[in-house]
């Protein structure tokens, strides 16, 4: 068991590449719409859970209103596509910029606060954004939602088939992963994790805490915005009912369930929790009750999440240390 772990940790990069390679060829063997849909949705949730894991897992800042940024991204893209017939790439850019801007505003206010004060502030932000979406009827059509959002278009090429949308999502997910990967494995990443472990100590070591916090917050808001923009064109219909606090909590549960600070865990956690409700559909009206009980049990059995206690870097280091010792 330990050998497997070490082998896995050492070749994590190759396993990751293999995994995404598999995802890339999978559509050629899959004929069912449902399978494609589930894979696409899983990837979307993994992307959003990545965003929360970056913020909550690596930086240690907890928000329960992050879905607001997804809403901002979704509405930006939907309005630009529907009313101004923009292509997808500039739409994505606009969605990223706008959600990043609101992320910046919120972070300037929120990050000065401590722990739960900040968390509740993000909750308030989410509610306010949702109410604006409901009530600003001239822009968002309010509760009527925006329907008939057309499929993504890149340089004149329309991606309307399920398979092309799948690949678009896969690309977005890989980009997100690369971004987060490169952040946490850089010097900035060390600073970020130092802040998570002990903010005061980090500050004493000369780390500009507020700067890093703001950057990470804005980045994770941007990822949510991008996911939202994708969502709008994927679903072709959005309304404010999707971007609620409880939806936000669901994504947080995915990130925590997978294991905070572990990207592989997030992939597993988000996928399992997306598919689990589908699998227990035969329970009919008892489904939600059982789902709640399952969540409690899983948390009690594995409080760190599935892979929260696994640190691949540490396993690698241990292994190499042992090797050196063995060689002497």
């Amino acid at each position: 068991m330990k050998m497997v772990k070490v082998f896995f940790a050492k070749n994590l990069k190759w396993f990751t590449i293999l995994f995404f390679g598999l995802l890339a060829v999978l559509p050629f063997f899959m004929t069912s719409n449902y399978g494609m849909r589930m894979l696409t949705v899983c990837m979307l949730y993994v992307m959003m859970a990545f965003s929360l894991n970056l913020l909550t897992g690596f930086l240690g800042v907890m928000t329960i209103g992050h879905i607001a940024f997804m809403g901002i991204g979704a509405y930006t893209a939907a309005i630009l596509v529907k009313n101004y017939h923009w292509e997808t790439l500039p739409c994505y850019l606009a969605a990223i910029l706008l959600s990043g801007f609101f992320g910046l505003l919120l972070s300037l206010a929120a990050l000065k606060l401590q722990g739960y004060y900040m968390t509740i502030l993000t909750l308030g932000f989410c509610e306010i954004v949702r109410l604006v979406e409901i009530n600003w009827e001239s822009l968002t059509r309010g509760a009527l939602g925006i329907s008939g959002i057309s499929a993504p278009v890149f340089f004149g090429i329309r991606l309307s088939s399920r398979r092309s949308i799948y690949y678009l999502m896969l690309v977005l997910l890989i980009l997100t992963l690369l971004l987060i990967w490169s952040i946490i494995n850089s010097k900035a990443g060390n600073a970020i994790m130092a802040i998570r472990e002990d903010e005061l100590a980090a500050r004493a070591m000369g780390i500009h805490v507020f700067k890093y916090k703001t950057i990470v917050f804005v980045l994770s808001a941007m990822i949510m915005g991008l996911a939202g923009a994708f969502y709008a064109q994927y679903m072709t219909y959005i309304d404010p009912g999707v971007f609620t606090v409880s939806a936000s909590l669901n994504i947080l549960i995915m990130a925590i369930f997978g294991g905070l600070g572990n990207l592989l865990g997030t992939i597993i956690g988000a996928s399992v929790l997306t598919i689990l409700p589908e699998m227990i559909r035969f329970l009919a009206e008892y489904r939600n009750l059982i789902y709640g009980i399952l969540i409690i049990i899983l948390m009690l059995v594995k409080p760190d999440g599935l892979l929260g206690s696994v640190n691949f870097k540490y396993i690698r280091q241990q292994a190499s240390v042992q090797k050196e010792n063995g060689g002497e």
């Binding site: 907890m62 549960i253 709640g292 969540i295 409690i296 009690l300 760190d304």
Partner: peptide
């Protein structure tokens, strides 16, 4: 961590409501 406690209370909320 406190977060786990938080998720657990959410689980309880779901169970009670249902």
């Amino acid at each position: 961590t406190k977060l786990v406690g938080l998720i657990t209370t959410m689980g309880f909320a779901t169970v009670i409501e249902n």
